[in-house]
Design a protein around this nucleic acid. Structure first.
Lengths: 149, 149
DNA sequence: TTCCTTGCAAACGTTTTGCATCGGT
DNA sequence: ACCGATGCAAAACGTTTGCAAGGAA
């Protein structure tokens, strides 16, 4: 296994960002890596940490999330809710969100990336980043549980 | 003038939505119509209303915004801030946002609309709506005022 | 030992709600 | 006259911050 996500790697990533290697930061990073497509709110993280026996204060979680975001290890999303959803940083990608069950699907589309560049040029705009989110119904069988949070 | 935005029209729109035609709702609608490309926070609306001699409580503004949104007369945007920005509902369009000065530019692009449909189909997804926001620098001369709010 | 990190509680800013009053219809 | 709409104040909510105690280097 030449996994990119060993504990060693995380230690290096944190050090590189000038952050001390603490239990909280490692545990949080590991959760993100355990399900790379999942989106986590601060609250959800707190619950998951609690479930695995780690009691970490919400304040710390918010602080860590901010730091990991600045270190470019995770990405913050402001979807339609009042809560921010974080996910591990990957190459450019966007989201489909089911308005019935809240399910989030990620996708990558290079045509989209190109189109964004074209549009930016049209407005003499220097593109830094983007967000694109499609809302609709996922048409899955198990789209019955309303808003899994 | 065969304007679509007479007071008569607004009265009809409100009635159609099952809302009483009150001073607050009319004034707020008029502000949105006076600058169709502008984006307003609840706070900003309160200030503008105050400037024109209308003192309307923030609670009412939020209630009206929610109702106008449900009536499909305005649209709510959750950009990167903590505040929601509302604008009058137009045909599909998206945003370029300057990360330096906060300036918001609207654009419409039919290629984008088509591409969204293609992507949705790919995931067996029934598209209802979308959000696309490009962040970058607007390269305007007057891009010096940091974050005009 | 140093300074960063954490927990707790309190503060914060935005949005929502309860309730009495007001105003369309 | 009825019932929805409003104002005010208080509550709720997610997030941030101050401070004292704890932990990595």
């Amino acid at each position: 296994m030449t996994s990119q996500n060993t504990k060693e790697d995380n230690i290096n990533k944190l050090k590189k960002a000038g952050l001390k290697v603490t239990r909280s930061r490692c545990k949080i990073l590991e959760i993100f890596q355990s399900s790379p497509d999942e989106h986590y709110t601060a609250d959800k993280l707190k619950d998951m940490l609690a479930d695995s026996g780690e009691t970490i204060g919400l304040a710390t979680i918010y602080r860590v999330l901010t730091q990991l975001e600045m270190a470019d290890l995770i990405q913050k999303n402001n979807f339609d809710d009042n809560q921010s959803a974080y996910e591990i940083k990957k190459s450019h990608h966007d989201h489909l969100i089911c308005t019935k069950c809240g399910n989030i699907i990620e996708f990558v589309n290079s045509d989209l990336e190109n189109l964004q560049e074209r549009i930016s040029k049209e407005y003499n705009f220097s593109l830094e980043s983007h967000v694109m989110t499609l809302f609709g119904n996922c048409n899955n069988e198990n789209c019955k549980h309303l808003k899994n949070k």
